[in-house]
Amino acid sequence: MNAAFAWLFDPEHWSGPTGIPARILEHLGYTSLSVLFAAAIAVPLGAVIGHTGRGTFLVAGLSNGLRALPELGLLTLLVLLTYVGLLPVVISLVILAVPPILAGTYSGIRNVDRAVVDAAHGMGMRSSTVLLRVELPNALPLVLGGIRAATLQVIATATIAAYVSLGGLGRFVIDGNNAGPGSPDGYPQMAAGAIVVAVLALVVEGALALVERAVVSPGVRDAARAGRSARMRRRPTGDVVENPI
């Protein structure tokens, strides 16, 4: 255990392009890039499906189907099908990040009180205005919940992606493993990397929770909390799925 912490706090490992700070930035870079792409696809799609009620099967099908797909398999398959580089990895990460955001947005829109939506129509709002001004703001807690789950999923999978030569914090684990457990850069490096990844995930989770609190209208927040705890469960990798009960 001491060896792991010695490795972690060695000043040598905190500078340069392969140091811990650089790897953290890389990791956050991949993560935000992938989540942004995924959100750009999944939020509008989820909003339209939730608003129109058409294509519901897509939401359930995607989250159920993708939960069984091993992340490692998806990454290696895409890299093998294309080439070793950033693009296939980011595509994998986007694929994994879409379902939770889609499910979050969809259930967020669906959970908006029907009376509120009726009232909006009754006041003469157009369908698009209802979606943008009424449904989406009310759905925000679940949309953000989906984004939070997707972000944690991507942080976890980006770590695994070091195996297919991606940078980021997974490098320490993979490189340590390749160096052999006995070597000074072996297990201590792996454990140090794992600790940093775990801490990063917890910090990001906390930060996103704070963002959620700051952004969501207090009137919506309380109402959403009840619905969320009852209807949504998170899977181990942080994916929001609709509970099949």
Binding site: T159, A194, V197, A198, L202
Partner: peptide
Amino acid sequence: LYTIPSLALITL
């Protein structure tokens, strides 16, 4: 515990 990525937990 949920939040900790799988590879990190396995390694630790």
